[in-house]
């Protein structure tokens, strides 16, 4: 379990209480009172009975001493896990769109950073804004041998280009999400959901292959040590080979590396794309620049020639 400070635990609980609509009160910096609804197991009541309970929660052992009877909520505690378990039913799917709220100058600065040759063309005319669909899937990857290591992977698949952006959720930062899809200017996706998931799975396969192989190699060494030990027991006494074989298989099952992939939640998100059109130059077609501010990414369609290159070409002619 991740290491959390008492403040982080408290913030998580308050967020959870807010999302679930439960009443709560911060008595002081250390004590939190929360009124929650608890389900009495169907084992006793069918259907399960719901009951209101008031929880007195503290977050440090010192506070626990000041408030006898209050429940200490720390990483790994029953109560924190209770809140986490309660969230299993929430936030599994979401549909949101985002707006670009920055100033024109800001986006132009970013464009210039991405493509320095654009600097001469600045300032650009006002961009059009379109919304591009992304499929965001957050996964837990459990790397299992006889040991376990878990990671969270957040992948965003551009449903138009098929490009996958790792650590996608972090790209969104604290931006304001607006519920639902935008009403206009939505780019048409080129990928179906089935195809999108196939791409994501392929990406995950590659991600695992590219991982530092020590976790596999070390498990293999341990497995071979066990297998050798097992063999010593059976070889001299010529015991039942079938027995040896089945035990060896069990060992293999214990040590073989596998990666269990669990989706945490899925979002259909529409991210803003700023579409700049550069004027036609000579025989060149109009150049269209598509800037994705949340991903800080630039796409070009048509041919764009930097002014320096254009001047050089004119001189030559």
């Amino acid at each position: 379990m991740a290491r959390l400070t008492p403040e982080e635990v408290k913030a998580f609980l308050i967020d959870t209480l807010q999302v679930s609509g439960a009443a709560y009160r911060e008595v002081d910096n250390t004590l939190l009172l929360a009124e929650v609804t608890v389900e009495i197991p169907p084992l006793f009541f069918d259907p399960p009975r719901l009951e209101k309970q008031t929880l007195n929660l503290v977050f440090t052992p010192e506070a626990s001493a000041n408030y006898p009877g209050a429940e200490l909520v720390i990483p790994g505690s029953y109560r924190l896990n209770w809140f986490i378990d309660g969230l299993q039913e929430r936030g599994n799917y979401t549909l949101q769109h985002f707006k670009f709220t920055g100033a024109a100058a800001k986006s132009e600065k970013a464009l210039a950073a991405l493509r320095p040759e654009l600097k001469k063309a600045l300032p650009l005319s006002s961009p059009a804004e379109e919304a591009r669909p992304f499929l965001l899937v957050n996964y837990t990857l459990s790397f299992q041998t006889d040991e376990l290591q878990e990671e969270l992977v957040s992948l965003g698949l551009d449903m138009v280009s098929g490009t996958i952006t790792p650590d996608f959720f972090r790209c969104l930062g604290e931006a304001e999400a607006l519920p639902g899809a935008p009403e206009t200017g939505v780019a048409t996706p080129s990928y179906t959901l089935e195809a999108a998931f196939a791409l994501l799975h392929q990406y995950l396969e590659e991600l695992v292959q590219a991982r530092d192989p020590r976790w596999v190699n070390e498990a293999r060494v341990r497995y071979e040590e066990e297998l050798t030990c097992l063999y010593q027991y059976y070889q001299e006494d010529q015991r039942d080979f079938g027995d040896f074989h089945s035990r060896a298989l069990d060992l293999y099952d214990k040590f073989r590396p596998r990666v269990l992939v669990r989706p945490v939640n899925v979002g259909l998100l529409y991210l803003p794309v700023l579409v700049y059109q550069l004027p036609k130059e000579g025989r060149k077609e109009k150049t269209v620049l598509r800037y994705l501010p949340f991903l800080d990414k630039l796409e070009t369609s048509g041919e764009f020639e930097s002014p320096t290159i254009a001047k050089a070409r004119a001189r030559k002619q």
């Binding site: 959870t16 999302v19 990483p75 896990n81 936030g91 979401t94 290591q149 878990e150 939640n265």
Partner: peptide, 19 residues
């Protein structure tokens, strides 16, 4: 669909539970 806040919190819960 659930809210963006619930979505973020769900992810946070998964992050906290990571081994």
């Amino acid at each position: 669909w659930d809210s963006w806040a619930a979505f973020r919190l769900r992810l946070r819960a998964a992050e906290i539970s990571l081994f």
